[in-house]
Design a protein around this nucleic acid. Structure first.
Lengths: 215, 215
DNA sequence: TCAGAGTTGAAACGATCGTTTGAAACATTA
DNA sequence: TAATGTTTCAAACGATCGTTTCAACTCTGA
């Protein structure tokens, strides 16, 4: 019986992921979600508790997946660099690529999910703010340390800020990329994602390594 | 009698601006708005039509104010440069400063309004998408032309994209700046805004002028 | 001064929302 | 098979929403 329960939860979670991403927390109704999932309306409250709990679970699942992949790639790059500092461009790649890949893969999240993350960073829904911070902040601090080794001339406060700017550029880029792909009736696929990532990495690498303190 | 009508509309519009910014379109209710404005619930539909019309008016008012100031500063910078290309850094300043100033001035919009703009660029509410695009796109194209003169080595497509990245970094920076100011119990005020803008301009200027096409 | 347009007000309408309820259906264990 | 715990289901609850209605009020112009 536990099998049926898990399957229902998975269907609801998947449908919720798509509808929350498309319409946001308050506009995606539980009736929409359960209908798309082929489940009963009451199933959400039975399996997940309140609507907020379902939302929390969906958002954190995406963010955790991306962050795990980032940490994995970053460790790999560090190993490759040996005792030299990791090249800045390689660090940025590990920061950008997992999120863009996640956004471009319909299997795991698909383009719309990026809006979900971007929206969440803007809205900071009170009931999820802390959990999201405790998930994101350690990774950002890790990146700040690694980047500071590649850029010894830039202060720590400056780098923390620039990583935030990078995050903003990345999120906005992802949202726009999604819209462009939708308009351009597909046809490009994976290669274009690589071009997009390269341009984004160009931009962010230069920004992170900018000469500091001009007037 | 027209005087009373205009005053009521202004109170509603102001209250709506604050509440839409804080809670978003669907979560800010007309009952909240009219209560804050000291007006009757029916006054919104009487003076503005539907809730969507009120929202549209509020968002466009902010965006138009910022864009007018951008164009003004850009023309001023062009005049100062004579027949030389405008220095890239100066162009970025005219792009960044009006939005950050608008966001930091409680009189005209205040910090929360930035969330409203950022959210709108993510959500693209269907009923306002076109109007917002027709307001933003010409300005972005204007900037693409000016920047391309300062950066003759970068292709037009690349620059358009980099301006989008700049927009993303700018919006995210504004949202975060608002949160930090709230946490840090003020005390810093205008000087800190300038530091913040300088750092953001450092980042974006370097990003826009990045060497293109690395692997 | 008085008819009439413009504006405000209280109340209600219909719709949708998240959540709860209690019975039916199901699988599992004794 | 009988008993037990788990999951599904249809239905309803209470609350809130945007909008409409229509009477009361206010000010203008002849």
């Amino acid at each position: 019986m536990a099998k049926s329960s898990a399957a229902t939860q998975a269907r609801i979670s998947s449908a919720a992921g798509q509808l929350f991403a498309q319409h946001g927390f308050s506009r995606a109704s539980l009736r929409q979600i359960t209908k798309k999932a082929g489940a009963n309306l009451a199933a959400v409250n039975y399996h997940f508790g309140a609507k907020e709990d379902l939302y929390r679970q969906v958002v954190l699942r995406h963010v955790q997946t991306i962050n795990r992949e980032r940490v994995r790639l970053l460790a790999q790059a560090e190993q490759l660099a040996g005792d030299q500092p990791v090249p800045l461009r390689a660090v940025v790649e590990t920061f950008v690529r997992p999120l863009m890949r996640h956004a471009s893969d319909p299997e795991i999240g698909g383009p719309p999910f990026l809006r979900l993350v971007a929206r969440e960073l803007i809205e900071h829904q009170p009931f999820l703010r802390e959990e999201l911070s405790s998930e994101l902040d350690p990774v950002l601090e890790r990146y700040a340390r690694v980047v500071s080794q590649s850029l010894p001339g830039v202060s720590s406060a400056e780098l923390t800020l620039r990583l935030q700017f990078t995050t903003g550029a990345l999120l906005h880029a992802g949202v726009i990329w999604h819209e462009l792909v939708q308009q351009a009736q597909a046809g490009h696929e994976a290669r274009d994602l690589d071009v997009w990532i390269r341009r984004l990495v160009d931009f962010c690498t230069a920004g992170l390594g900018a000469p500091a303190g001009q007037s």
